[in-house]
């Protein structure tokens, strides 16, 4: 059954896949970061906080608003951009170079990285391979878009 994006179920599904592919993520190394995902839609937004620890997504929760002081960074974007990214991942098995997180967020024009502390911001790049591979797991999940 398709899982709706955005939702905690979607991130929980990725979490399950991540656990199942532990060896792959172990090879990429520790990932210790907590970040926010904000999906905007017609002036409204849904917000999620993802807490990664060691090799796992420890916890994901939906929140009303993301407190930038409590996360390392937040990835913010319109639902259309997120959808395009996930559909691209589905088609290719992983994001192509026009649809990976770094490219989409590079100049903040499609996805935007928002942060309070630049040390937190740099964690996105320190753990980029793991974070990208985490989102690439979307290729193994049936996703529907509301």
């Amino acid at each position: 059954m398709a899982i709706s994006f955005p939702s905690t179920d979607y991130f929980e599904a990725l979490k399950g896949k991540m656990t199942a592919q532990q060896e792959k993520f172990r090879r990429l190394g520790f990932i210790d970061t907590t970040f926010g995902v904000k999906v905007g839609n017609n002036g409204k937004a849904r917000n999620f906080v993802l807490e990664f620890e060691v090799f796992d997504l420890k916890n994901v929760r939906e929140v009303d608003a993301i407190d930038l002081k409590k996360v390392d960074f937040m990835i913010e974007g319109d639902a259309r951009v997120w959808r395009e990214m996930i559909e691209n991942i589905h088609r290719n098995g992983e994001a192509d170079s026009s649809h990976d997180l770094n490219t989409l967020a590079h100049f903040g024009e499609q996805l935007k990285i928002v942060y309070d502390d630049p040390d937190g911001h740099d964690k996105l790049y320190r753990f980029m391979e793991s974070i990208q591979k985490f989102f690439d797991l979307s290729s193994q999940v049936e996703v529907s878009f509301s």
Binding site: S97, D100, N102, H106, D122, R126, F127
Partner: peptide, 27 residues
């Protein structure tokens, strides 16, 4: 920047790893 405008898969993969390493130095 180069990863975002990568002219080849080689550049994208290489810069993916390189950004992790250089981000640690910066941190």
């Amino acid at each position: 920047h180069v990863a975002a405008f990568a002219p080849s898969k080689v550049d994208r993969v290489l810069m993916g790893y390189a950004m992790q390493d250089s981000a640690r130095q910066t941190a």
